[in-house]
Every structure is written in C-alpha cells, then in structure tokens.
Design a protein around this nucleic acid. Sequence first.
DNA 1: TCTACAAACTAACATTTGTTAGTTTGAGTT
DNA 2: AACTCAAACTAACAAATGTTAGTTTGTAGA
Lengths: 192, 192
Amino acid sequence: MEKSDRKSEILSVAARLFRERGYSAVSMRDIAQEMDMKAASLYNHITSKQQILVSIVIRIAEEFTVGMERISSSGDSAIHQLEQLIDLHIELTLHDPSVIACLNNDWMHLTDSDLKYFLKMRDKYEEGFKAILKRGMTNGEIANVNLEVIMFALLSTLRTFYLWYGRKKLLSGDELKVQMKRVLLNGIITST
Amino acid sequence: MEKSDRKSEILSVAARLFRERGYSAVSMRDIAQEMDMKAASLYNHITSKQQILVSIVIRIAEEFTVGMERISSSGDSAIHQLEQLIDLHIELTLHDPSVIACLNNDWMHLTDSDLKYFLKMRDKYEEGFKAILKRGMTNGEIANVNLEVIMFALLSTLRTFYLWYGRKKLLSGDELKVQMKRVLLNGIITST
DNA sequence: TCTACAAACTAACATTTGTTAGTTTGAGTT
DNA sequence: AACTCAAACTAACAAATGTTAGTTTGTAGA
C-alpha cells in the first residue's frame, strides 16, 4: 500500500501477516505464498527475515520520533500539544494499522543495535510525553494526578487503537479524533 | 506462584517466557531448560505445548468472566460498577502479570474450540461492559460520548496495565486503584 | 537478433521444532 | 529385599525453518 515496487509489497504483506500471527509464527514460506512466489525468491528483494522486521518497525518508530519533535518544539499549550499527539497516533494508525501492530507486538524480536536504537527512541518519546504533561500540570492546565498514571492511560489507548479501528466504521477519521480527545482529556463522568 | 506441584510450575514458567518472547518464539526446550530438565520430561506433566497455552489463557479468561457476572449483577450504580471493574483488572494483573500478558498477546494461537470458547467469553465481557456504560449514560451518570470509544479507552488502559506495573513501584496496589479511577473516570483536564 | 539483467525458479543444506518410545532412577511401601 | 510408581532420562523421528547456490525465464535496450 505504498510504493509499488516489489520490496515494498513484501513489507506490506509481511506486516499484515505479522499482525495476524506474530513475527515468530510467520514463515518465509507463508510470506512467499501470499505473494504467489517461492520463499527463495524473496531473497532477490530482501536480505533476511530479520531485516523485514527492522524495516517495518524502525521506520514507523522514526515517524513517531519526528512527530514528537515537531509537536513538542511548537510553542503551543500543553493541552493543545496533547491534542496534536492524539492526532498523530490516529493518523499513523489509520494509514497502516498492521505496521502499528508490529510496532507494538514484534519490537521484542529486534536484536542488538536495532533493539537498542528502538528502545532509545521509545524512551525519548515517553520523556517528551512526560515533559508536556509536567508543564501542563505546573501551569494548571492539567489535573494534579500521578504523572506516570496519566501518561500510561493515554499511551495505552493510543497505542492499541489499531485493535479497535474498524469495529465502528461509523465514525470518520475526523470524528474519531474529536471523540477521542473528548474521552481522553475530559473524562467520562458527567461534569455537572 | 500457585500450587507447588510440578504442573503448576511449568505453567508459571511458560507464562513468564511467553510474556517475554511470545508463544511461538518459546520452545519446549526453552521451558525445560528454565526448569532444569529435558524437554521430553515435561510430557510427564503436560500433554502438549498447545495445552499449556490453553490452560493459561482459558483459566484467566474465565476469571474475568466470573468477575463481570458478579459485578454486573449487583445493583450498584454504573460508576460504582466501573470502579469495581477497574479493581478487578488491577487485582488480577498484580496477582500474575505474565498470565495477563498471555491473555492479551497469545490468545490468537488458540485453535478450534478453544479459540471459539475464548472469543465467546471476550464478546460477553465486552457486552457486559457496554451494558453498564449504556445504563450510566441514560441515567446521566456518564457523559454522552460515543459508547464504543469510551469502552475502548477504558479497556485499552486496563488490559495493558501489565506493561506498566513495575515501572513505578512507588505506588501501592490500593494507591494505584485510586489514581487509576481518578484518571480514567474524571479525566485529565483541570475541572475549573 | 544479441545482450543484460531483474526476478523468478528448483534443489538442497543444517538447525530447530514438537513429540514419542523405551529406559533408568530413587524414594516410599509392603 | 522386592515392588510400585512418579518423574526424570536418552535417543530418535518427521516436519518445518531460514537461507544459499545455481539455473531458467522474460523483457527492454543495443
């Protein structure tokens, strides 16, 4: 669903299968079959199964990293920055849910320097998130609840959104963003 | 971490490894090594790798099913029922995080009737959840936002709590419950 | 028509996988 | 001392795995 060259097709098919069964449960022969070819032929386009995973996971992780840098360096209010982060997650999820699933579930199969690089990015992302929350708390925009708990609640929802998108097709992308912000930021209990 | 017989030990070790690497990436030899025995010896206690997974996943799924039945058949207010559900998730997670991880990540490797049974329970759980939310909305306890979005936000957070518990040991179990309810139900933005 | 080359193929490889069969061990009971 | 039995073992299996080597095919440019 990207460039039409063969390598991108493989990455796309692989991501779909990884999402359904997990990285370890998908064989090169599975991927090949789905592309109507033999497993050995895949190696004309990619160098290893491991590299398929790296291409998928690192690429999307970098997109989140770039997004966080852009948003947190803007001068906007903390709440508005959170809203932009919600948009970022929703947009990337709608664009390719399978890739987000790999990011969530298969990063653990990265090895050595790739794993290290990924974890560095993840840490940085969460640090950026916490910095925004902290600023919002000190200037009174955000309620004074445990910071880790707030971040955990927000990120859990945003990261596993791929599991839910598609169950209610009723909502358009934009409508989803609106509802999500309402639930995540304003809460659930009726404000009387 | 349950009964001290050998079979329970195997289930416990397996759950831990499944959590770290995923069901497919863990071999019988891995499990055996962790128990200081040979793979073949495991079969004195269990009948197959698949059955290990079934034992872990179905057991905990049934615990959630029972919990939902208990809570939703009480006459409490919708908000109070939601609070009890939050407690249920936190308690089961603290009791054995690895088992919760398997429930979340490895259910897809169940087969045939086990998978069917699991999906039936999951559906029923979510129906129970929605019924509570709907009641809370019609009697004004809960804000009138898209019902699926609310459930998704709550369940995402509760289900992936196992990923976060342990990063902030500062909070006790009870303190965690309080903070979680505050964030999930009252929201994040300062109520002025 | 000849050449070049990407992209498919067949065949094979060494490992790893879940599992079975048959055997040994060792502690408790008769 | 003989017996029982759970629980470990060794050895082996067929199947599946990721990957490589070498070969064929089809198309585009000279």
